[in-house]
C-alpha cells in the first residue's frame, strides 16, 4: 500500500510535483514534514521568480530544525499558498492538499524525479 499519492512525482530532497499541463504544483512530502516536526514558518518564493531544478526556492522551519525547499523542476512561480503564512501547520496536517507551497509554470520537462513506488523505496532507505 503506497503511502504517497500515485499521481505525483517526487524528488530525493522530499518535494513533490503535480504536473497540470504546462503548470505544476509543488509541496513537501509527508516524510519531510514528519522529519521536521511541527512546522512553524514557511518562507515562500516571490511570484515571478524563476528557478532551475536543484536550486533553493524557500525554506521551512520548525522549532528545532530548518530545511531549504529545493525546486524539483525548472519553472517560474505563478502563485504561492499564502494560507501558509498564517497557518504553517497545514504542511503537517495536509502536505499533499491544503499544504501545497507554490504553483509554477514549467520551463522544462521534469526528468529526474521518482514515481510514488520509487519514492516509497527511497524513503525506506532514508530511515
Amino acid at each position: 500500500m503506497p503511502i504517497n499519492p500515485a499521481e505525483l512525482l517526487y524528488s530525493d530532497t522530499h518535494e513533490w510535483l503535480r504536473v497540470e499541463g504546462q503548470e505544476a504544483v509543488v509541496g513537501i512530502t509527508r516524510f519531510a514534514q514528519d522529519a521536521l516536526g511541527d512546522i512553524t514558518y514557511v518562507e515562500l518564493p516571490d511570484i515571478g521568480s524563476a528557478f532551475q531544478a536543484g536550486q533553493t526556492f524557500g525554506s521551512v522551519e520548525s522549532v528545532k530544525a530548518a530545511s531549504d525547499l529545493v525546486a524539483p523542476a525548472d519553472g517560474t512561480v505563478t502563485a504561492v499558498n499564502t494560507a501558509l503564512e498564517d497557518a504553517p501547520e497545514l504542511l503537517n496536517t495536509s502536505p499533499y492538499g491544503k499544504g501545497w507551497i507554490a504553483r509554477i509554470e514549467l520551463t522544462a520537462k521534469p526528468d529526474t524525479l521518482m514515481d510514488a513506488a520509487g519514492y516509497d523505496v527511497f524513503c525506506a532507505t532514508e530511515k
Binding site: 512553524t40 514558518y41 522551519e61 520548525s62 522549532v63 528545532k64 530544525a65 530548518a66 531549504d68
Partner: peptide, 12 residues
C-alpha cells in the same frame, strides 16, 4: 525563532 541560528542552520 531559533531555526535562524548557527546551532541549527550552521553555515546558512
Amino acid at each position: 525563532l531559533q531555526a535562524r541560528e548557527q546551532h541549527i542552520r550552521r553555515a546558512k
